[in-house]
Amino acid sequence: MISTKATVVSNAHLSCGIYKLVLSIPDMPEISCGQFAMVSCGNADGILLKRPISIHDFDNKTVTLLYEAAGKGTKALSQMQESVDLDIILPLGQGFEIKNYKRIALVGGGLGVFPLFSVIRQHADVEYSAYLGARDSSHLVCADSFIGRCARVRLATDDGSAGEKTYVTSLFKEDLARYGFDAIFACGPKPMLKALKAITKDTDIPVFVSMEERMGCGFGACLTCTCKTSSGNKRVCADGPVFDINEVIL
């Protein structure tokens, strides 16, 4: 984990207010998939806190983040031009562990699709089945990069403009018994995670979910981003964001 200055290599609008930010990092630390970064959005308009954004992709010089310009901070971030320096802390949290899994199902909804890509980038020798969902086709900004890297990719949209008009968890449910998954990795809104928990409750396949909560420091010191677990409150930023689905109380 380092606190450093990163330089904006590119910061491009993809679609629907979703941006792809490539940052070059001096002294790149070791990263594992599912971890995140705390990114400064400058201090315009009274902004203080850095924003938590998942690592979408990385190599030995750069990290790529996909983010939605949602509120004050991320909108300011979307205005950052090439070669601007940003304060950043990374990599943070406990990511997804591949262990000796051979067949992994990835279940992502909305912005939760973004961090799942880091899994297939870091561990190419696993057989992946990806179930990706969003509001509509233009919000599914990175689905293409899963195709070709996964044994199968199934898409769900609320309006049927890409893939099937259904919930991503429904697609996953159809395939659950079919492909003998060793593990399931998921990231998405709480209702999606709850549905996933219900679908998988009678299997003994391990399910790991990435949680989201409002954060202060991002590195474990301020105890503001806690979530409830079977063993008391845990810090999403340092004990998570990835937890065993049986541990977190959704």
Partner: peptide, 23 residues
């Protein structure tokens, strides 16, 4: 102490508001 429920932090102009509750 387990402290209060989340969200426990809000960002406001030039400041933050916390309600950790002495976890």
């Amino acid at each position: 102490r387990e402290g209060n429920d989340s969200p426990r932090i809000a960002e406001v102009y030039g400041g933050i508001i916390n309600s950790v509750g002495l976890q």
